[in-house]
Simulated scan of single mutants.
Amino acid sequence: MINFFKEIISSIKEGIEEGKQELAEEKKLENAKSNLKEDSISNLPYRESFGTALGAPFRVVNFGDWFTLFKSLEDSTDEYYPIHLYSFGNYPKLEEHKKDFIKKLKIDFGIVDTDSCLKVLSSFFDLLSISKQNTLLENIKGASIEIPFKELSSTKYPAVITCILSHIITASTDGGYLEKEKALNLLDLIIPFIKQHHNNWDEYASSFFQGQSEIKLNNSAGNSVLKKYIGYLTSKKGSPWNNINWQE
């Protein structure tokens, strides 16, 4: 029996502590050089950048330094963008964060290898009635799970499950459980699903935050931090939500 959300609050709490730490100037420069230049964004496949961006609210927990590196929309001096919010599976400093992804996948979703990853993903695809035909999930029976919040099985707040799916797919690839091309094939299926329900990133952000609050995905402290992170995603110049078109 897998309880998907038993420890997801722990990730947010870790993000709180990370967010409190001030980075030295040398560290900032080093990290900035490891990120994606603005003119390189257009070279990434749309399905990769958009699919990765869907999981940004969870993905930023592993990269709290981004918020000290990148300025607001009105500041036009930033040259670098946070590559880990646009791409997955192969980017600078991946090895540095790989253990964090592996740890949090185990704590939050009970994912410890490829087999458990596929079972969890299959369960979510079944929950949303998304076809698994011609994917690596086609013959995978979903894990026996206990969903404590019935709202997850509805499309009232589809951004919640979509965000979780994106996070699991990208983090599992970063952790070595999924091959990137097969992961991209899965993102190809959830992208049209979420576009049926929302028309832009603002709607997506609102749906995600309201939905996770309603199903009590986090406690009050976690909600506060997540709200701040979503605010950064909607206001920072380097955020994919401000650079990737909702419609391709």
Rank of each mutant, 00 (worst) to 15 (best):
N3Y: 05
F4A: 14
I8C: 06
I8D: 07
I9D: 13
E22M: 13
E26V: 03
E30V: 00
E30P: 01
A32G: 08
K33L: 09
N35Q: 10
K37Y: 11
D39H: 11
D39M: 06
S42Q: 10
Y46S: 13
R47P: 13
T52D: 03
L54T: 09
A56Q: 02
R59D: 06
V61D: 14
G64N: 07
D65N: 08
F67I: 12
S72W: 14
S72M: 10
S72H: 12
E74M: 13
S76N: 11
E79Y: 05
Y80Q: 09
P82Y: 04
G89V: 04
N90D: 15
P92Q: 09
E95S: 07
E95Q: 13
K99W: 14
D100T: 12
D100F: 08
D100E: 12
I102Q: 12
I102K: 12
L105D: 00
K106F: 03
D108A: 13
D108H: 01
D113L: 02
D115S: 11
V120L: 05
L121C: 03
L128Q: 07
S129D: 11
S131C: 03
Q133K: 15
L136A: 07
S144G: 09
I145N: 09
I145F: 04
P148S: 10
K150F: 11
K156E: 09
P158C: 00
I161M: 06
S166H: 02
T170E: 03
S172D: 06
S172H: 04
Y177P: 06
E179H: 08
K180R: 09
K180Q: 08
E181W: 02
E181H: 09
E181C: 05
K182D: 14
A183V: 06
L184S: 05
L184H: 04
N185Y: 06
L186I: 02
D188V: 01
I191Q: 04
P192C: 02
N199K: 14
N199T: 14
D202N: 14
A205V: 00
S206P: 05
Q210E: 15
Q210M: 10
Q210C: 13
G211Y: 00
G211K: 06
Q212S: 15
Q212H: 03
E214P: 04
N218G: 10
A221F: 04
V225N: 09
K227I: 01
K227M: 14
K228P: 03
P240F: 00
P240M: 00
N242Y: 01
N243D: 06
N245H: 08
W246H: 09
Q247D: 13
